[in-house]
Amino acid sequence: MTDKNDSKQVRLYGAGGHSQVIQSVLKQNGVEICEVFDDNPCLSHPLSKNITVTNRKNSLDFPHEGAPFIIAIGDNKQRNNIAEFLKTKFTKAIHRTAIMDPNSRIGDGTVIYAGAVIQANTIVGKHVIINTLASVDHDNIIHDFVHISPNAALCGLVEVGEGTHIGAGAVIIPKVKIGKWCTIGAGSVILKDVPDYAVVVGNPGRVIKMNRQLIV
């Protein structure tokens, strides 16, 4: 596993609430936030009052130059779209209180928040969010652009497909495979495999609809 931060300077894309939490992680790790970009330059970001939020259309003509980026946006599809737009280098941010097994692997652009636990032999892809106090046990595979919400618990040998959102407090039992671009409702208990694009809620979890707008 690499160090918790690969760079001493970071540029952020996104200036809303999710960005504020990432700024806190970076600040505690001694990383300087040198630039913040957003489609809406009027957004506030109180943890870095001296930084101007810049509209991307005027300032990202050459995004490959300068410090690496983190996409500071919670919505999985938006992170996916912006990553394709930027086509630049990314770095990761891992809170100093997160517990990371040395045999885990974390992709670029991924953010891991306070109190999260990543256990042995887990692979976390690019631009993933492992939120506050989430637990990801051994031998998990977390694909790109996933968001695992606060207090979610993934047991061993779980696989989560690209772009899936695991809601707060959800529990995934061992050896379950969750498809891509799914939504797992807060507090759900997932006892069996979940197909691509499914929206699942309840205990035990049941499919209530499909995310048709995400199906290509």
Rank of each mutant, 00 (worst) to 15 (best):
V111W: 05
G163H: 04
F85I: 13
L154Y: 05
G115E: 03
G205V: 02
M210D: 09
P204V: 06
V25C: 08
H165M: 14
T164R: 04
V53N: 08
K87C: 15
G125S: 00
I141E: 01
D108L: 13
C182S: 07
K180R: 13
N40K: 10
I71R: 08
F37Y: 15
G125N: 02
V111P: 05
I208K: 02
V201F: 01
S135K: 04
I178A: 04
V176C: 03
D193W: 02
V124T: 05
T132L: 12
H64W: 11
V128C: 05
N29F: 00
V31A: 01
G16W: 00
I129D: 03
N5F: 15
R212M: 12
P63Q: 07
I112R: 02
E84Q: 15
P68R: 12
Y197N: 09
F90E: 03
D144H: 05
V160E: 07
G30T: 09
G125I: 02
N80A: 13
I22P: 02
V201E: 05
A72G: 10
V207R: 03
V160M: 10
P41S: 06
D38R: 06
T110F: 03
F145W: 10
V36L: 05
H147R: 04
N140Q: 09
G74Y: 05
T97N: 11
A98C: 06
K177W: 02
T88W: 05
I82A: 08
A120R: 02
G30V: 06
F90N: 08
A83H: 08
I184C: 07
K89S: 14
E35D: 15
N151F: 10
I106Y: 07
D75N: 15
A93T: 12
W181G: 01
W181M: 06
I99Y: 12
F62A: 15
N76V: 01
T91E: 05
D75I: 00
N40L: 11
L86G: 11
H95F: 10
V171I: 15
R105C: 11
R11I: 09
K175M: 09
T183L: 14
D61P: 03
T52C: 10
N76C: 13
G16Q: 00
T97D: 11
I51R: 12
N76L: 07
V199Q: 04
K180P: 01
